[in-house]
Design a protein around this nucleic acid. Structure first.
Lengths: 238, 238, 238, 238
DNA sequence: TATGAATGAGGATTCATTCAT
DNA sequence: CATGAATGAATCCTCATTCAT
């Protein structure tokens, strides 16, 4: 009956070691595994429906302006049901964003790294970014990171640790091997692997804000950047 | 960006580099210009203090999570005073962001365009972006456009029309003259003038989210991009 | 009409002669009529308690000066609960007044019209007005119509359509039949059926304003008017 | 600087012996009298303009919903100016209503009472009511008494004492003389002089609420009532 | 006197969260 | 698990009133 002091509710609690309780115990995949119990399956479906609806709402309105009421309506459940699945609004938001990590990471991990020429590797990356992120609802996740990340330090940290840093390691590795193989010269790309994504981020932001005035072809932009980069530092054999 | 103790900034700060805080340039009717312009001057100062405080608060928390109560406290005025100067929260926000247009535009307009070599021109732009925007509180304005723009279509439109489009026209013009002068080749930059800002936007976003884990030198990043671009398409005879 | 200590009426009073408080007659969908109709029943009781409390408050203070806070306290619910049942203050007010239509109408419809002598009919009406309206809390509804109606055109319209016009039709019909039967002469009452209620309205207004200085017996006043009318236009048989 | 406890502000203070300070010292007439001092004249004009504007606003919105801001705007003065002339909103309202007493009373006092036949006397009254009250802006005053009087006991009292009681004395006197002269019979009119005004009040209320659906001719209604009354109790020999 | 910017208590409304069913 | 009515803290906004000019 007594409510929390409120102030404590409203502030993003970056501190609490949210234990991700009984991890994956009701993730979509869990449902697939435990086919027998119809109750679990239905519950998992509900869980997924909420996350799904939440993505739409959060993406459209931002964290603060999103009403759980709307999420519930969109998910086709009662408001209270959300609290059966998530501790609170913040947890829902964070879990939603965190849930989307997997798919993003998979792209990285599955990209063949070994002895692919750097250019091919980088083109693969750009392609993946455009097709698998900008071209799908995953785009909203990246949007949310960009627009809400500053208010959710724990999310920013997770993304830094799980996505950004890893991606930079992978790209730097590829760059180093390319240098070793004599494909490129200079240290620009080792220092700033971000140069490969910069156009992608710009395209994302552009899309959020200016698409209706002037569309921007993210793929073409990223390809142009790759062209520039390799025209600049690719060793001109021949 | 934790909330300042507020009391520490309780007095209207007429200090900040805000452009028109001096005169009664904003008074309802520019007044009859009474001798000591006392009332108008104070009113204008209040107006400015509110905008100033609002910038801090909105930047730190985003539109929805900002309490006008805090804005008032930070501006050193009573809650109601905000409503003497702005119809409502939204109007305050929009006017705040719109007010910042001037300074951003001035950078564009004052940049010597004429017969500067493209590289010098572009380096000037990058420099300006880093020093005058990322290096000042104006950075917050760009942040707000990025994070809130999607929810304020009219603002996005204004920025597209007044800043983005104009900037693109200017850059494209410079690029064309450079081509005409034989400085560069190819049409990449005509098609994607955005390539020059992309690293700047990425740096801004990076700064919002990941600065505390790994700082990113925006200036160096932008310079690296300029280097790449001119290494790639600058005519390299001579 | 001083505000009750509120705490004294903290519990939803299902007692008062409110017509449909019993069943789930108002529940969103009349429900599937679950066995003990527990939730719906409680909800309906809450709804009724709010309307009930609102009547008291609005009657005592008028629309604008009434605080929903007080309504909530008097109804024994939390402030927010009001908004579960009514969109806003205005809706609550209108629904409250509209809700009271039924009982007022019933008086009209149940009055035997057929072949009663006009005088008996009219005395019945006056009696009903005094006993069932001026003598009950329904009086407040008529007060509210009189004092707030001008600011709520939709209410005035509803009352005109549902009460006034219908009542005038009924009375005119009775008058015409009385003429046909040779009970009365002249067309005054056909043209101004309002003459029968005028003393009632005056009594209502008098009661609001001057009762404490000089009480006015509404019943006697209305009877006097009826006497006058029939002394004037009743055919003096004999 | 500190504000009143507010609760004390909002409640109609019927108690305080508002001293009606230096009565009439700035009423319109005062202005006419003190022609020389232009400052007084202007001040009186301002005073009158405010009262005038206030009548419109209060009549249109009721006491609580009227904003002094609007009154000021309509009067063509600054908000603060109102407080130069009136202690507060309530005082303005009460003074406004009280100010209108004079004209209403004058009607009573100037009506020749002496030996006019009752019917002529009463027709004169009705005529006066229709022409001088319902037909002018004074109608708004009566409206305000009806709609706000319950919340302003001191006003109700004043009106009872100054208008209602006096009028009843006058009418009763006329009735008694008429009886003495053998014009009418019975004691109905002595007991209920209100019967003469009832149609007027009904017409006023009707006008506030239902005029747009079905206009009501107040004059005709009142005349019909007078006809009825005299048809009923006028001695009809001769 | 007149002005109108400033004040701040008050009140309507929202919405995350709880909990009895 | 699911529901949705109930809760009440939080916040926007209004407006009577004050006061320095």
């Amino acid at each position: 009956m007594p409510k929390l002091p409120a102030r404590e509710r409203a502030t993003p609690r970056a501190t609490s070691a949210r234990p991700q309780p009984a991890a994956g115990s009701r993730g979509k995949r869990a449902a697939v595994r435990t086919a027998p119990k119809s109750r679990n399956a239905k519950s998992a479906a509900t869980h997924a429906a909420i996350i799904d609806a939440a993505l739409d709402e959060f993406a459209a309105r931002g964290f603060a302006a999103t009403r759980l009421d709307d999420v519930a309506r969109r998910a086709g459940v009662a408001k209270g049901t959300i609290y059966v699945h998530f501790r609170d609004k913040e947890t829902l938001f964070e879990e939603l964003v965190r849930t989307a990590l997997g798919p993003l990471l998979r792209g990285l991990e599955e990209t063949p790294v070994a002895d692919v020429p750097l250019r091919a590797f980088v083109e693969g990356l750009a392609d993946h970014f455009v097709k698998e992120i900008l071209g799908t609802r995953r785009k909203h996740i990246v949007r949310l990171i960009v627009t809400e990340g500053a208010r959710f330090p724990s999310l920013a940290q997770i993304y830094y640790r799980e996505v950004i840093k890893r991606a930079m390691v992978v790209v730097r590795g590829a760059v180093e091997r390319a240098i070793a193989r004599g494909e490129i010269e200079g240290d620009t790309l080792q220092r700033f692997p971000q140069l490969f994504v910069a156009p992608g981020i710009l395209a994302l932001v552009w899309d959020m804000l200016f698409a209706r005035f002037e569309p921007l072809d993210a793929g073409a932009l990223m390809r142009a950047q790759v062209d520039l980069v390799f025209a600049a530092i690719g060793k001109r054999r021949k």
